[in-house]
Each structure stands twice: as structure tokens, then as C-alpha cells.
Design a protein around this nucleic acid. Sequence first.
DNA 1: TTACTAATCACCCGAAACAGTGATTCATTA
DNA 2: TAATGAATCACTGTTTCGGGTGATTAGTAA
Lengths: 207, 207
Amino acid sequence: MIRVFIVDDHPVVIEGIHSLLQNEKDIAWVGQAKNAQSCLGFFVNNTADVVLMDISMPGMDGVELCGIMKEKYPGIMILGLSTFNQGLYIKKIIENGASGYILKNSSKEELIKAIHEVHAGYIYFSGEAGMALQEYQKSLGRELPVLTAREKEVLALIAEGYTNPQIAEKIFLSPFTVDSHRKNLLAKLGVKNTASLIRLAVERKMI
Amino acid sequence: MIRVFIVDDHPVVIEGIHSLLQNEKDIAWVGQAKNAQSCLGFFVNNTADVVLMDISMPGMDGVELCGIMKEKYPGIMILGLSTFNQGLYIKKIIENGASGYILKNSSKEELIKAIHEVHAGYIYFSGEAGMALQEYQKSLGRELPVLTAREKEVLALIAEGYTNPQIAEKIFLSPFTVDSHRKNLLAKLGVKNTASLIRLAVERKMI
DNA sequence: TTACTAATCACCCGAAACAGTGATTCATTA
DNA sequence: TAATGAATCACTGTTTCGGGTGATTAGTAA
């Protein structure tokens, strides 16, 4: 019997998954919690084999809770649970010791398979999540195109929070030119807006 | 006599500073370079007491060159030189061993004072640059306001490169609501646009 | 009970960003 | 010499962002 515990701030999700699992012969439902504190409270006097954990919850989120749980109870396997899939979150929860990650709208079959795999000590990722992770890691691994001196200069100023006209004034260029450099930055680095650009630049220590 | 060397890709700047310094009795002009390679080449067979170094140059920039110079010749004092002033650059060049930082449009008096201070082993920052650095360090030191669960969620999705309408669709909210959260993020964190927001978030490891 | 905050939604408006296209100059390189 | 790429500037749209303002609901804390 695999003892399963769930922590999620949405009762609907808890109920939904509970009903999906209730007829499974080798799965035992040992309890549920609506937040991180209740979850930690439960494990003071109880245990489980697999914990399904929502990654985004009010207060302490699943990523943080995962780290604490794995530190206290390394034997308990944790399966991340989320409504949407983000390479970043996936990466973070793995770094915090989770054994897998599935979407809340997964099929019953996939959910059960994931629980079994994780319980057996394997890592399990639902198709979509696995792809998102691969994309993310690929993006981290690829080497970056060479930026010209001007592009680096403009990039730094964008990161400082200046707008195109402000940058133009600062380095004595036409706003059109600054805009050109900015577009070249987006194109060269393969990102689609300022947010992605700055995130990449900071993460890769380009600024 | 303080032996001064300058590296800057703009001949105009080299000439300008040269002429400002040529009548100073205790300052000797030992040479100049237009790029990092030439500078390193010069110091193979020569030396100087103070190097004025442009922080943004094509190819290897001043920040990097500064690190190499200080590693090879720790006794040579380096004074960063730039057309505009950025807390980030200032911080980086100090981390790489520079002893000071002034703007290219500084007065003759300030330039000479800076050279003397740096040569004597003191750190020197022109007024503007010093203030920019203080602002920067203050911004790093302050503790961050607490973000709500929704705000963190929206922040993460902005960092992934999604627009407000896309985020709204993804987490089942009105675009207006997402926009509200976004504005609250800017206000809470005291930044003025997405670029600053994402930079802060990544640097402070909020995502 | 009242006050506060989180979370939600709504609209207006101007500024900024982004997409697309195209052009010139200059220096380097094949 | 021809081609390439960096750097510059320009115009036209459309979309997104950001400032301001305000409102409702629900839950929590004083």
C-alpha cells in the first residue's frame, strides 16, 4: 500500500484527486492539508510514502515546503502539482528535492502512474512538464551570441530602468537607433520582450 | 611624479585629458592605448602609477581589463572613466579592483584631485558617481516588502515573458486584475518598469 | 464591530515597446 | 574588390505597459 498525503490550498483539487484515487487498491489516503503549516503539523505524528504538493500556495509555497519536508523526512517522496507548467518552477522544486511534477489536469492514469513511479524511487515528469524542463535546460545550456559594444551598453541601461528616449539622451543617439539596438538584442538573444531579456541578462551575468 | 597611463577607445578623450594634464608638474604622461590589448602590451615592458580606464570599450571592456590588470600588477591604481554614471558599472569595477571612478566631463581640478587621491591609496569617487553608488547599495540593502501569493505568481509569469492577457488566460483572471497585480508589484518594490522589476526579482532571487 | 488587506474587476489615456521595412556609412574581411 | 556586419537613422502601425482612479467582496485582525 502506498500511503498518499496531499497539500493544496484548493479544496476542490483535494476532493478531485481524492475521488480519483479512492478506488485504487494499492493506494491509501492518509490525509490532506490546506497549507504548509498544517502539512508540517500532520507529519509530526504521522507519515506517508508520497506527498502531492501544490507548488503555489498562500504563505509558504510548495517549493519551500518541499525543501523543509525533504530535510526532515528524506524518505518521503514528493510530487509537485500545479495548474500550469513553468520550467522555472519545475527546476526549483527539483532542486528542493521533489521526485516529480505533474499538472493538476492530468488524467487518472497519469496520476496513478506518477505516484507509483515516484514511490518506487524513480523521477516522474508528465509529458508537458518534462518538455518545459527540457526547454528550460536547453535555454540555460546554449551559448549566447556575441553582443556588440553598443548592444551591451544599451542592455545595461535598459536594465537600469531607462526608456529608449532616456537612453538616447544619455548616450547621444537617436531614439530610433536605441530602438534598433533594442530590437537586435531581442532577436539575437531569442527573447520576445523586455522581461525575458532582462531575466536572461541577469541570470547569465551579462550585466 | 605620478606616472599616468590612459586607455580609452576615443582619441578625443585621450587628447582632452592629455591636454588637461600636460602642465601639471607632478604628473608624468607615460602613454596611452585605444584598447585592452594595447594596454596589456604596454605594461609588459613599462609601468605606471595610475591608469585612467574607460569602462566601456569595444572588445574587452574596462571592467574586465581592470580585473586582469590588478591581478598582474596590484600596485597600479586604476581610476574608472565613463561618460555617464551607473551604479551597476561602478560596483562592478570596484569589485574588480578599481580605486575610483570619475566622469569624463569632470573638471580639471577634480581629475587631478582624483589622480592624487588614488595614487595615495585612497578611494575616490566624483560626487555624482559616489551618489549613484550609494543609491545602488542602499537599494541592495533594504529588505523587500512581502509579496502576496498572487503577486508572486504574476511576477513569475512576467519573468517567463508572458504579457498581461496571456497571464490572465493562464491563471483564469481578468486582464484587468493581472494588470492590478502588476502595478502593485511595481509600487511595492519601488521600481518604475518591467525591466527594473525583473532585474530586482532575479538579483534578489525572488523567482 | 470596525478597520484593514488581499483579491478581484473596470475604464481612460498617454507613453513605451514591439514588428516590419528600409536606408546609409564605415570598417573589416574573405 | 566584393561582401559582410556594426552602427546609425527613419517611418508606420499595433500592442502593451503604466498612471490614475475607483469599486466590490471576502476574510482577518484589532
